[in-house]
Amino acid sequence: MVDGKQSISFRERIQGFTRNQTALLVLVLLILIVVFTSLSGGTFLSTSVGSTILTDWGAYILLAVAETLVVISGGIDLSVGATLSLSTVTAGWVLVNGLHLTSKTTGVDAWPALALAALVAVLTGLLVGAVNSVLINILKIVPFIATLATFGAAAGMAIIISGGMPLQGPTDFSLINPLRIPGLDPKVFDTGLFSPLVILMALVTLVVGLFLHKARFGLYTYAIGSNVFAARAAGISIARHTTKIYLVGGALSGLAGFYAYVRLGGGSPTSGTGMELYAIAATVIGGASLMGGIGRMWGTVIGTLILITVQSGLLMIGVATDWKQIVVAVLIAGAVAVQTLQKKNGVR
């Protein structure tokens, strides 16, 4: 015992460092950036790559945020990607088949139509969230199976509504192009990193993050995820609160569908294909536990950034993108290992 107190072992140092989840994630991100920059001969560390990474981050982040809420509450949502697909398609359908607008409407002229697209997409997402809530809270189906069902139904409906083809409609591509500080020549110093829509996605993330960490909404979410019996005993209505969580998750996925609509200039039925797995991966890499009760919004924000950086980085250094899956697998395993270490230390 005396010996142990005299010198801090290497293992203890590691354990101490892993307590600071956010610092660890930032470190991983920095290492990735350094590795990709050196292997790409410097091209990776450029504003244009940065803006592409942020554009992709904007596409994934709201799904990851939705997933984080659900995972912290002890559930899982497999339907986020399909909800994105369905929402982007219903938005496209209303504009193209409902209002007979075409891709010839561009720029500021497209804004009223885009506002409507955003509304339709969010309402569609809310609807899927409501179905999830009914399946989980009223029919008492476990979240994995309930959201697997809505995943299939939403993906199928996206195809039926769109006829399997992208519904090309009005858009304003400048909304997803990076904003630049006026007066500075981008050839000398390119300031273009954040597009208006990426800023919007970041603000939405911030608001949800504040609700998660600073409001009763978050407190209840953690309580239910940590111990559902204790939460019930404390007077929290489990059904009412999980309904809120799945509704918010649906609305966020719907907004991600609007993002895909603007980015692709239309509603494409496969816009969300495969994205649920990356949303879950980003959440886990960010430090959330699939057992519930553990997770931070900052972790998810950086976890998503790490995933996208890997995707872009591998392409920039010319490594086959097949490797992406392997790198992602390593990151997930690493994140879970850190969690296990923390549990041993009694850190939450």
Binding site: T52, D56, A59, P166, M275
Partner: peptide, 21 residues
């Protein structure tokens, strides 16, 4: 060459990265 795995958003992202590279 790069893969989109059926997702047009991934296909767009690949092209954006290529434009820099």
């Amino acid at each position: 060459v790069a893969y989109s795995a059926s997702n047009p958003q991934t296909a767009a992202s690949n092209v954006e990265n290529w434009l820099t590279k």
